[in-house]
Design a protein around this nucleic acid. Structure first.
Ligand SMILES: [Mn+2]
Ligand SMILES: [Mn+2]
Ligand SMILES: [Zn+2]
Ligand SMILES: [Zn+2]
Lengths: 141, 141
DNA sequence: AACAGAAATGAGAAGCTTACGCATTGGCGT
DNA sequence: ACGCCAATGCGTAAGCTTCTCATTTCTGTT
């Protein structure tokens, strides 16, 4: 239940938090911007301000409930933390996002950090390319 | 000579472009924000507007002369393209940036892209952590 | 060396995303 | 049910980057 999720994250259970978590859950295969979450709230006739959306998403992130990613394009995107780390590959033409996890890369990163005397806290790996979707606008016909 | 560099990039040789290229060259070990380049121009009594700095940096990037990176913190940083690709490891405490290149990681990325049907165009790999610099503010004493 | 056309520049304003201030509302423990 | 403090909504502001447009500067050509 969402209430438990929010409570366990150390946050007071409020309507905005419930609704936003709900939306992230229903779109767990996507990566949504704050604006998109906000628009989705409007569709559902929820009177929740954009500032609250940003605030709640930031709180979810701080609580480890959600992750924020900075793909090219200015707007940050959010997704629920599913417990297993993954990185992203983004189509620069149609925006499609796929996820992957590569043990070899992860290990190499740790090794590199060690070699440079860094205690690694986080990392961001994003591959940009053109996807092979026939519907992808960039596909030569 | 800088003039040749700029001309070969397909850009008209202008004073702002010369000066900005000069500054990037003199700071080739750093990663500078547009604002930092602008401040450096002010120190040199060059009457070059911030808008021009942004424009020129963007043009340098488009021409392959420079690279833009988005480390955490809002501001993009720029560096001259030295011809050899590298990725970055950033200290989240003192901001120190080190560079690395790992053939294994690069190969894995290519493999992953292939597996997902993406023609890879670019990638961004940034490791965040705490460095071991004794001067680093975060160092426990 | 002067000229003309096109491209580039400077200054300020605007755009966009995100954060903030504050009066008001709303959870939640009592 | 009550009251306190956190959370919210709205408007505003901040930070970074880009745009607009009148003016200047290149560049190739007389
Ligand atoms: Mn994801
Ligand atoms: Mn670099
Ligand atoms: Zn695509
Ligand atoms: Zn450090």
């Amino acid at each position: 239940m969402d209430q438990q999720t929010i409570r366990k994250a150390g946050l007071k259970v409020t309507l905005p938090r419930m609704k936003i978590l709900e939306i992230l859950e229903e779109n767990s295969q996507r990566h949504m911007t704050a604006e998109e979450v906000y628009k989705e709230l409007l569709l559902r006739d929820e009177e929740i301000g954009l500032a609250t959306v940003y605030r709640v998403l930031t709180q979810f992130e701080a609580a480890g409930l959600a992750e924020r990613h900075h793909f090219e394009g200015g707007q940050a995107v959010f997704e629920l933390n599913r417990g297993e780390h993954h990185d992203h590959i983004v189509c620069i033409t149609c925006g499609k996002v796929e996820e992957f996890m590569d043990e070899t890369i992860e290990k190499c990163q740790a090794k590199i950090a060690r070699r440079h005397g860094f205690r690694i806290a986080d990392h961001s790996l994003i591959l940009y390319g053109e996807c092979d979707n026939p519907e992808c606008p960039n596909r030569p016909k």
